[in-house]
Amino acid sequence: MNTKTRNIIGWVLTAILAFAFIASASMKLTGGEQAAKGAAGFGISLATLKMLGVIEIVSILLFIIPRTGMLGLLLLSAYLGGAIATHLEHHLPITAPVVLQCLLWITATIRFPELSQRLSGKVSTVK
Rank of each mutant, 00 (worst) to 15 (best):
M70V: 13
P66E: 02
E89Y: 15
Q34N: 10
G43S: 11
L71Y: 03
A35Q: 13
A23T: 12
A20N: 04
A96T: 11
M70R: 00
I60E: 00
A18R: 03
T86G: 04
S77Q: 08
I65W: 13
A36R: 07
G72K: 00
T48A: 13
A47V: 14
H90P: 01
M70C: 03
E33V: 09
F63L: 04
L46T: 09
S77R: 12
I64Q: 02
I22Q: 02
A85G: 07
I65C: 06
L29C: 09
P93Q: 14
I57L: 06
V58N: 03
I57R: 02
I22F: 13
G72S: 07
Q34M: 14
L75V: 08
I57M: 05
K50R: 14
L13S: 08
L61H: 01
L61V: 10
I84M: 13
S24Q: 09
L71N: 03
F19W: 15
Q101S: 15
L74S: 12
L46G: 11
T14V: 08
P97G: 09
G53W: 00
K50F: 06
V12M: 10
L80W: 01
A40H: 12
L61F: 07
A25W: 02
A85H: 10
E33I: 06
M51A: 13
I64P: 00
G81Q: 10
L100D: 00
G32W: 09
A35S: 13
A96E: 04
S26P: 03
I22Y: 06
M51F: 06
A85I: 14
G81E: 09
I44R: 09
G53T: 03
E89V: 09
K37Y: 08
G81C: 12
A20T: 14
L74Q: 07
G38W: 04
A40Y: 10
L100I: 11
H90C: 06
I55S: 05
S24E: 14
M51N: 07
A20Q: 08
I22T: 12
I22P: 00
G81P: 02
I60S: 00
E56F: 01
S59Y: 01
L76W: 01
G38R: 01
T14I: 03
A20M: 08
L71H: 02
M27Y: 10
K50Y: 07
L104R: 09
T30G: 12
F19Y: 15
F21C: 05
V98R: 05
A39T: 11
G31R: 04
T68L: 08
G38A: 15
L75S: 06
C102M: 15
L29Y: 11
M51W: 05
A83E: 00
L74N: 05
E33H: 06
T30R: 15
T68K: 06
I94E: 05
I16W: 04
I55K: 04
